[in-house]
Design a protein around this nucleic acid. Structure first.
Length: 314
DNA sequence: AACGAGGTCAACCGCTGTAAC
DNA sequence: AGTTACAGCGGTTGACCTCGT
């Protein structure tokens, strides 16, 4: 299809940006907006490619960018989200306000990847990558167990994202009340259709309909991750609850439950219910995960400094 | 103090998806 | 329907920094 280059390369500056260039770019965008990135450099008087301007703005100059080291919470989120979506840095960045995909990608490659390796976890597959790690995840079926452990981490992330998104949407759609439950109900009532609501405010359903949900459904379908109800080992070892009684939906699988969810009129209640189930399911399994592998928290434990991890896994 | 190895991160490259024509 | 332009994405590079010898 022979695409033209994004800009004329001749005479355009490359390499690090100078403070003067930064100022020109910031001033221009704050005054005019970025508009077309292609035409921006010419209009602003910069000898840069539009692409370079966009990158500089989105990764460095944007006023809402958070600077400084990643918090433990952010690091946990990155690991959990990476477990769900893989190297979808923009997707991960979307869940971490003020952080850019580039920043997260760099942080993953230079810090988190190494830490996971030191923990004996393959950062690409999340499978145990060393004998020491293997010994940590003992059990009747280590492969299944490990998969389930990471799935629960994914579930927890999904649940949290859903919850936060719902609350955020509700808060931004109303201005007169601080009562969350009222807000949500009111918001739901005001929507003209369930479809519109799903598209605009239901982050959970969007996730479920995205590649994340798709990947998860496939795993559920192929029993790579045990269905909630029929997992004797899980119940036996973790003391999991009877989720049927929690959901009130009878003998449903998680996938089935979500399918029912999308057709429900009482979406707000259903979302809360889904969230609750997610957390209960994930909560038990995360305890298992943490007790066996040290869990994600071990990556951030003050007792497990970089130095001690080095010693432990060398 | 000098040097090299390894780590970090801003920036670039090449590709894809999509809207506009 | 085909083509083009554009924005955005993930992978990679290379300059700079830090640390150990």
């Amino acid at each position: 299809m022979g695409r033209a280059p994004c800009c004329e390369k001749q005479g355009l500056k490359k390499g690090p940006w100078t403070p003067e260039e930064d100022k020109i770019l910031v001033d221009y965008i704050q005054t005019h907006g970025h508009g077309s990135w292609r035409s921006l450099p010419k209009l602003a008087g910069l000898s840069r490619c539009g692409k370079s301007c966009r990158l500089r703005w989105t990764n460095y100059l944007r006023p809402d960018i958070k600077r400084g080291p990643f918090t433990d919470e952010e690091q946990k989120s990155i690991i959990q989200l990476h477990g769900i979506v893989g190297n979808k840095w923009s997707t991960i960045a979307a869940q971490l306000p003020g952080r850019t995909d580039n920043e997260i990608k760099n942080f993953w490659n230079t810090h988190l990847k190494k830490r996971l390796r030191r923990m004996g976890i393959d950062p690409d597959t999340y499978a145990p990558s060393s004998p020491s790690a293997g010994s940590l995840s003992t059990g009747a079926n280590p492969a299944t167990r490990h998969m389930a452990q990471w799935e629960t981490a994914r579930l927890e992330a999904e649940a949290r994202l859903s919850r936060e998104s719902l609350l955020f949407s509700a808060a931004s759609n109303t201005s007169s009340t601080s009562d969350t439950s009222t807000t949500i109900t009111t918001t739901m009532d005001n929507k003209s259709s369930t479809e519109a609501m799903c598209a605009e405010t239901d982050y959970f359903l969007r996730i479920w309909n995205s590649e994340i949900g798709d990947a998860f459904r496939k795993k559920m379908d192929t029993s790579a991750v045990p269905k909630i109800k029929a997992e004797p080992e899980m119940i036996e070892e973790t003391g999991s609850r009877n989720y049927n009684s929690v959901s009130g939906h009878g003998d449903v699988t998680f996938a089935g439950f979500i399918d029912n969810l999308s057709g429900s009129n009482d979406v707000a209640d259903a979302q809360d219910e889904a969230y609750r189930i997610y957390l209960e399911f994930a909560g038990d399994e995360l305890s298992l995960f943490q007790s066996q592998l040290g869990g994600i928290n071990a990556l951030f434990s003050s007792d497990l400094s970089e130095a001690s991890l080095d010693t432990a896994f060398k």
